[in-house]
Amino acid sequence: MAEARHRRIAADIERRIAAGEWRPGGQLPSRVDLAIEYDVHEQTVRLAVALLRRQGILEGKARRRLAVAYPPAVRTLTDPDGDWPYGREVIDAGTCRASSDLAARLDIPVRVTARWETLECWDPGGRSAMLVTSWWRGRRRHHASAVFEVGTVRLDARQAQAFRLPMDTVALLVQRTRLGAGGLPVEVADLVLPADRWQLRM
């Protein structure tokens, strides 16, 4: 019952935001005031707020007033091999045996050990803007050039959570291949970008 209540409150706050009662950047009443208004325990409001923050509708840190989040800016990706100008973090890394697809992309034998890592790149507001998973064999090497293929992909559960979007949402996929001086692949990567936040111009 409490779970259903916090979801109903979250839906009502979202409805009030859509109706213009609170605008992007504007502050909401405190959690205490919302609890009084909705006639519920403050913890129920905290659950509703946590849900809206995960969805990217509200922003604000613990013990601070909440604000309506601005919609994510639409950015243009012109150089998928360029340095990311904002914050980023390695969120996972490890080794794997190359599948036939990865082996073909890296031009290595199937089942050879490759290294990989996933970077989460943030926009200036600290929201997830892009996920980049890279694979390479041995030590990382400098590259002389890069080539790209563009397509789409449906977000898996982890990607959807990072972007605060529903699972199976269609996203842009840029497959990047970095080439050494001799023209052979030294590293490949999948760049996953939410389609509602990006346009490509390469």
Rank of each mutant, 00 (worst) to 15 (best):
W136D: 01
L51M: 11
T177N: 01
R75S: 07
G20C: 00
V45C: 05
W122E: 14
E89A: 06
A181D: 11
H41K: 08
L34G: 08
G94H: 14
G25T: 00
R127P: 02
G126A: 03
A129H: 06
R53S: 10
R140M: 09
M130P: 07
E187Y: 02
P29W: 13
R46Q: 09
V192L: 11
A35V: 05
R75E: 11
R7V: 12
G126C: 08
V74L: 09
L193H: 02
V174M: 08
L28P: 08
L34M: 02
D190W: 03
A171N: 03
R127F: 02
L66A: 08
L193T: 01
V74R: 08
L179P: 05
R7G: 06
V150W: 07
A50T: 12
P71Q: 04
A189C: 06
F163C: 04
V40E: 07
V68W: 07
L200I: 00
E187I: 10
L155A: 03
V74I: 08
T113I: 08
I9N: 05
L52G: 03
Q43G: 09
G182R: 15
L191V: 12
W122A: 12
Y86G: 12
A181N: 12
F148R: 01
S30V: 04
H143L: 07
M130H: 08
A19C: 00
R64M: 12
A104T: 07
V45S: 00
V90I: 08
L102S: 02
R7F: 14
R97P: 13
D12E: 07
I57D: 00
L51G: 06
R178F: 10
H41R: 10
